[in-house]
Amino acid sequence: MTNEELIAYLTTSFPQTEVILGSQYVEMTVSEAQYHSVALQLKESKDSSFDYLFCLSGVDYAENMGVICHLESIKHRHAMVLKVRTADRINPSLDTISDIWITAKYHEREIFDLLGIKFNNHTDLRRLFLEDGWGFPLRKDYVDEIRIVER
């Protein structure tokens, strides 16, 4: 599907979401509650069949946290971006998508480690790189007087 077709398809399939064309990919923003079901449908549906999650990034937007999934379909060779934001910033939590794409399991662990977003129903949510009790370095308000030198 081309980007235009994809936009048309997504707007009809997911009426409650916001679909725009970003600088490169079609971007779809969903609410926290829809996140898991939309992701599942994106993968399972024959027309979209987004079976390959090639990037999963967590972002700290100053007022809340977000997760951005980059999806690609190996069959149709189209790609899109799925975005979701958490309601809370201090104790953010989202549904896991590791049951949909296995690779998300480890990317979510990384996000949990670096940003502190908790993923509900994640089978193995532990820190990945850092020690327990380190803090969440990718948060914008993270301070580390010893290791980070402000210029």
Partner: peptide, 9 residues
């Protein structure tokens, strides 16, 4: 299928 699931590229 696993290669795609795990994102093995």
């Amino acid at each position: 299928a696993d290669a795609i699931e795990y994102g093995v590229t």
